[in-house]
Simulated scan of single mutants.
Amino acid sequence: MTIPFTAGTATPPPSYTIRIAVLDDVVVASVVDATGEIAASGRLAQAGQAGVIDQVETAPAHRRRGLGRTVMRTLSHHATRLGMRGGVLVATDEGRDLYRSLGWTVRTPIAAAHIPEAGAPLT
C-alpha cells in the first residue's frame, strides 16, 4: 500500500499519551495508557524519499479506540518532518481497512510466509 505523506498532529483519546523514540534510524511511535503500558505502536524507517511503516499493532484490550489511527498519523507527521514524501507498507488482512480509511492505496496483493528460526520446532 502507498500514500503521499501529510503533516499534522495526532491527538490520542483521553487517558492515552503518545511517545516517540528514535532507535538508530527507526522512529517508534507508541501510545501508552494511564498505567504506562504500551497500548499501540508502530515503526517508520526511511528508504530514499519513501518511508516504510511496519509493525503497527494495537493490544487486544485497547482495540477499537482509534489508537492505530493515532499511531499512523503520528508516523506520517514525523515522516514529513524528516523529508519523506510518501509511504509504503505491507498490510495484513486485519489492518487493511484502517489503512484504506486513512487514504492508503493497495498497489498489489502480497502473500506472507513465516520461516522459523534455525532449530525452532515446526508447527
Rank of each mutant, 00 (worst) to 15 (best):
P14S: 08
G95C: 11
I115W: 15
H62M: 02
V32G: 13
A29T: 03
T58M: 00
L75V: 00
A45H: 05
V90K: 09
T105L: 15
R63E: 06
V27F: 12
V31M: 10
A10E: 04
G95Y: 03
P4Y: 10
F5T: 00
A111I: 05
H77V: 00
R64G: 00
R63H: 05
A61E: 15
T80H: 07
L89W: 04
T80A: 05
V52C: 01
T92R: 11
T11Y: 01
P109L: 04
L82M: 14
R100E: 14
A112F: 09
G83Q: 15
Q46E: 08
E117Q: 15
G36M: 08
D97A: 13
V52Y: 08
T70P: 00
A29C: 13
T105E: 15
A7G: 12
V31A: 14
P109I: 01
R73G: 01
F5M: 06
P4S: 14
T105I: 14
I115D: 01
I38N: 14
T17R: 12
A91R: 07
G87S: 09
A40T: 02
A91G: 13
L44C: 14
T108N: 05
E117I: 12
L102I: 00
G95R: 04
V32C: 15
V52R: 02
G119A: 10
A10G: 04
R63V: 05
T9N: 12
T108I: 04
G86V: 00
A40C: 07
V106A: 09
T108D: 10
H62N: 01
Y99S: 01
R69A: 13
A118M: 05
L89K: 07
G48Q: 13
L75M: 10
I110S: 03
T74P: 08
A59D: 02
A120R: 08
T80D: 03
G66V: 07
A21C: 06
G95Q: 06
V90L: 15
A29S: 13
I110H: 14
V28W: 02
P121Q: 14
L75G: 04
R65I: 03
L98R: 02
T105V: 13
L82D: 15
L98M: 03
L67G: 00
L44H: 06
G66S: 12
S41T: 07
D97R: 06
R73T: 05
T11L: 09
P12T: 02
D33N: 15
V56G: 06
D25Y: 07
I18K: 01
A10T: 04
T70E: 03
A7W: 03
A7H: 09
T9V: 06
A21R: 04
V31E: 03
R64F: 09
Q46M: 10
A112M: 07
H62S: 07
V88M: 13
G103Y: 03
F5C: 00
